[in-house]
Design a protein around this nucleic acid. Sequence first.
DNA 1: TCCTCATATGAATGATTGTTCATATGAATA
DNA 2: TATTCATATGAACAATCATTCATATGAGGA
Lengths: 107, 107
Amino acid sequence: MSKDAKHTGLAVEVSMEQMSAFFKVLSDKTRLSILMELLDASLCVMHISERVGMSQSAISHQLAILRRADLVRVKRNGKTLVYSISDEHVRLMLDMAMLHINEEGKQ
Amino acid sequence: MSKDAKHTGLAVEVSMEQMSAFFKVLSDKTRLSILMELLDASLCVMHISERVGMSQSAISHQLAILRRADLVRVKRNGKTLVYSISDEHVRLMLDMAMLHINEEGKQ
DNA sequence: TCCTCATATGAATGATTGTTCATATGAATA
DNA sequence: TATTCATATGAACAATCATTCATATGAGGA
């Protein structure tokens, strides 16, 4: 079962399954914190771990999920793996969410 | 702990808690199906239930969650309660997600 | 080549959440 | 006002998922 974006005229075919999976990735505080840090700068796992304030293991598990969802990319730099945001949709997505939350309850 | 959208220059202050809660609402297949139906037209609970193919109770539970998140609005019409999308962010959000999913794996 | 250090991964557990079933609520209309 | 019908709600259960702990992996530098 799938639905296209008839409203915007976009010729996009996407399943409900894929969409919920995508939003599920964005629905975790730890993963959001990671993304927020990566919006500012590319970082290695250790640094993300420090900034977000969670264990290396926890961060690594979550980065794997972000990778699978194509929200972050990895690049090796010497001994460390440097993670970065993979595309602009993420940024827009987060801003859109912030806008919505900010307007909740108004009017 | 909160973060503002320094990247877009938006003066929005939102907590990680609020953001994850928002995306969590969008991360369920049933709720997404409901929203998709409501993008086409305002509907009463019974009709949503029929179209989505789930029990009245299940739909009602999910509508309550969508209401609390300010994603849908209710209006009484005689004996029935008519639900509709509450604002344009939802539409944009869904389109953005579809775009991202559609571009996954490319390049 | 061997060791080391950064990162990944597997299993286990506690917490969260969606659905069902049963029932309550309450506005509309007869 | 009494009844009915649409919708909401509570409790219970199964399933999903994030974190921890322990350990594996494997590229880099000596």
